[in-house]
Computed example of a mutant assay.
Amino acid sequence: MNRLFDKKVALVTGAASGIGRATAIAFARLGAAVVVADTDAQRGAEVVHYITGSLGEQSLFISVDVTDPDSVIKLFCGSV
């Protein structure tokens, strides 16, 4: 397996479904630790579970609404 992103972190917004989910999984398959960022906590947790369980890579979910500036600041800084 190609480990192009070993020791790297990928932040994927909209990662709970669709193209974002596919992107998060693709980064994980290439060795990245993946931050799954989305408003949908349940589906986001399912993506994290797949990445950590089936692929054996590191991942975590962070709730974020990219249309809300305070939410994006919280994503990167931990608080507003």
Rank of each mutant, 00 (worst) to 15 (best):
Y50C: 11
G20I: 13
E57N: 13
F27M: 06
A37S: 13
V80D: 08
T67Q: 00
G44H: 00
L55P: 04
I19V: 12
G14R: 01
L11H: 12
I73D: 12
F27I: 02
S59K: 05
S79K: 14
V36Q: 01
F61G: 05
D70L: 15
G53K: 10
A37F: 00
L11A: 11
T23C: 12
L55E: 04
T23S: 10
G44Q: 01
F27H: 09
D40F: 10
Q58Y: 14
F61P: 04
A26P: 05
V66M: 10
I62E: 08
T67H: 01
T39K: 11
I19R: 06
H49S: 11
V64F: 12
F5M: 06
F27P: 04
I25G: 09
V48H: 04
L4F: 06
R21P: 01
A37W: 00
D40A: 03
D40C: 04
A10W: 13
A24G: 10
V66R: 08
D38P: 01
L11Q: 09
H49A: 12
K8H: 09
S79F: 14
D6S: 15
S54W: 06
I51W: 06
M1S: 07
A15T: 08
Y50T: 14
Q58T: 12
L30I: 04
S79L: 14
Y50L: 14
R3Q: 10
A33P: 02
I25C: 08
F76G: 13
A24F: 11
A10C: 06
Q42V: 01
A28Y: 08
S71T: 12
A10S: 07
V34A: 10
G44L: 00
T67D: 02
V9S: 04
A28I: 07
D65M: 01
V47I: 07
V34K: 03
A15S: 14
G20K: 04
A28G: 05
